[in-house]
Write a protein that binds this DNA or RNA. Sequence first.
DNA 1: TGTACATCAGTGAACGCGCGTTCACTGATGTAC
DNA 2: TGTACATCAGTGAACGCGCGTTCACTGATGTAC
Lengths: 240, 240
Amino acid sequence: MSATPKPLTARERARIEFTRDIKEAARRQLAEHGPDGLSLRGVARDIGLVSASALYRYFPGRDALLTALITDSYDSLGDAADAAVAAAAGRDPGERWLALCHAVRDWAVARPHEYALIYGSPVPGYAAPADTTGPGTRLPFLIGGLFAEAAAAGGWRPGPAPAAPEDARQALQPLLARLPWEAPADLVVAGLSAWTYLCGAVSFEVFGHRSAIVTEPRAYFDHEIRRIGTLLGILPAPAA
Amino acid sequence: MSATPKPLTARERARIEFTRDIKEAARRQLAEHGPDGLSLRGVARDIGLVSASALYRYFPGRDALLTALITDSYDSLGDAADAAVAAAAGRDPGERWLALCHAVRDWAVARPHEYALIYGSPVPGYAAPADTTGPGTRLPFLIGGLFAEAAAAGGWRPGPAPAAPEDARQALQPLLARLPWEAPADLVVAGLSAWTYLCGAVSFEVFGHRSAIVTEPRAYFDHEIRRIGTLLGILPAPAA
DNA sequence: TGTACATCAGTGAACGCGCGTTCACTGATGTAC
DNA sequence: TGTACATCAGTGAACGCGCGTTCACTGATGTAC
């Protein structure tokens, strides 16, 4: 059980480094040609490999490489969100939610193709293996946790919205059953809406649907998430 | 100016029909292999053409065909939204907004690949020509019109959200300048948020981010848009 | 510390596939007199 | 109404390209005695 650290051999270290290099090159390919254009031969060329077949020592095929990129991206995004929330530790959940939103947007704007890989169109002909789902849930659970925290501290004000009817509650059953804490459906809906809006706004910006509409994307984004956060009840209403 | 209808020759009629057939086959290709997998040879095969080069009589190349599919999709979605709003004529703007949302979702669920084409990841290496922007603005303008109508009738209640600060107003300048009517910035922001949330929710469902979370997508969608519509002020708050 | 063997990394050729686009061509359809 | 010519639709071969994956191979690195 308690395995000794056992120092890595030169071969093992080289393997780890090279795997990293391959994924970096693959991300460059992704940025240039999209997920469909990700080619093993292209990656091999990029890192100076003479023959593409050498890549099969590291990944069993193209799809496995794509899978690695997807889980990496989910994790990278999760890390960025985690870090932003941690950096705002001690502040109100609403403030931490704002920090999280900006972290997600910053991450996506800096890596539009990785964002598209996880929140854009599904890659046709590619079926995500089960491993992909774990890291993919980090962001929504992090957001949900902030809403739950706000509610626990008495700082969640649901606003004048209609309560979830029975069928909507039923629809959420698989999620509610999996939550670690006993959460009221309205709170879960608010968290999901926050996640939905966040990704909706980021997708619009990253995919270019706002380029002709908004000149200062960051300033506008900041305003809209403050607005939505207030309406969803995680931020206090402004003094009248 | 007033051109006579001038009856079409058999050739002209055949051309129109065949162009339609080509685009239908292309949409099938799109559904199976994605935008990158859209191939002229595949389309030719699908409609029983012996040689793919015949397609060059109808479209100057692959990209032109893709452009046609994109504008068609925007228009088809715009038509569906228009029809839903028209069918609810006479009812409150909020009710018509709900009808519009369901129409957009129904359209997207029925044609996930066409939805992905216009609201999913941008196609790499493909630059949308200017013609694409026109039909793409139909949906947001339709939504904005409903909000404006609600405001004009005194039925828009902005809620407790913070007012748009100066920089957010500035960021919206290109849009505000293009609006046919004098619109307060807060109203425009509400309309944009409604559009953002709508597409965020539909994208999540169509792209599979909710499959493990929500069992009855339609029921859940109905609830969430009622909630957001209420918070954004286009639907009346429920009786306390 | 030194040797013999096993493991692994990368090569290069090959298979079989699909693609967009061009071009000269044959027939059929339309038009002008 | 009939003929002569121009326009257009679709063919089939070809060019040049890139791809994933397999396989037998050469050397280098690691390991066990």
